[in-house]
Nucleic acid binder design. Structure first.
Lengths: 141, 141
DNA sequence: TATACAATCTCTAGTAGCTAGAGGTTCAAG
DNA sequence: CTTGAACCTCTAGCTACTAGAGATTGTATA
């Protein structure tokens, strides 16, 4: 059994974040010492690693909740899990596509001014003021 | 002079968002009717278009504040503006790089399970539980 | 001109996923 | 037994909005 600080060190998840995950129901309520401090075992460590890994891959807390729910029921169909993963993949791909559009546009705008003039003549500012100077549409990222 | 609703329609920025921008200091305090409703002119429309355009390109409110500050002083050097734009470009490129790593990993994981089995045997869940099943490291997105 | 009703006003609170700080208690080493 | 780091709970703050309550205003139509 080890403390929350030790768990934090081993998983690289910050202490307040661990408490937050517990509050959100991602982690079960930890056992406590007589003095009310949290104590964890290997199972706790594994679960937190799972969560961290999923967060690193961009899964939302809600999605992770569902994944954990499935993990806790080894006999259930894993269709939901593959659905969550593939929709996350779709999310990521959508974001990449949008960011690439932004990148092209920003790069084009950036090249338009070397920063040596005054703002009145700045192509960066002019581009932002006038959408017509843009190549195409951009959506919110 | 037109109402906030009209401005919203023309710029495709939602009404509460316009008020929020005013509160944040991105928009100057609007003129009011005798009955306290906001009225805008073309200058207001242009400024809001500028803001929306910058937001669409992913600039933060803070960055936009600086850009507007420069826009209001046509005689100042525009170095800050080009700096902001290029650091935004760097941001975007960093995000793309990270997301691409995620994409590879998610795609690999996703392919590992067709969702027809039970969760005990699910490669998606197994991958999340065990980082060793991953190709490489991933950072937070 | 009266009325109806859409649009506006301000204010508060909520979203995601944490992070920071105050003020107090517990654990563990020396 | 003392000391100080680590822990506890609670509240508030971050970004960029969004939603809703309850009250007021603007305007089109009868």
């Amino acid at each position: 059994m080890f403390s929350i600080g030790e768990l934090s060190k081993r998983t690289k998840v910050k202490v307040p974040t661990i408490r937050y995950y517990e509050e959100m129901g991602l982690l079960p309520e930890a056992e406590r010492t007589s003095g009310n401090q949290r104590r964890y075992d290997i199972a706790g460590l594994e679960r937190l690693s799972f969560i961290r890994h999923a967060r690193d891959l961009g899964f939302s807390i809600e999605a992770i909740s569902s994944l954990i729910e499935l993990q806790d029921h080894p006999d259930r169909s894993c269709e939901a899990a593959t659905d969550i993963a593939s929709s996350q993949l779709t999310n990521v791909r959508t974001k990449i596509r949008r960011l690439k559009t932004l990148e092209r546009e920003l790069s084009r705008i950036s090249k338009g001014c070397n920063g040596e003039g005054v703002s009145e003549d700045c192509y960066v500012l002019a581009s932002l003021a006038d959408h017509n100077l843009c190549d195409g549409e951009h959506q919110k990222p």
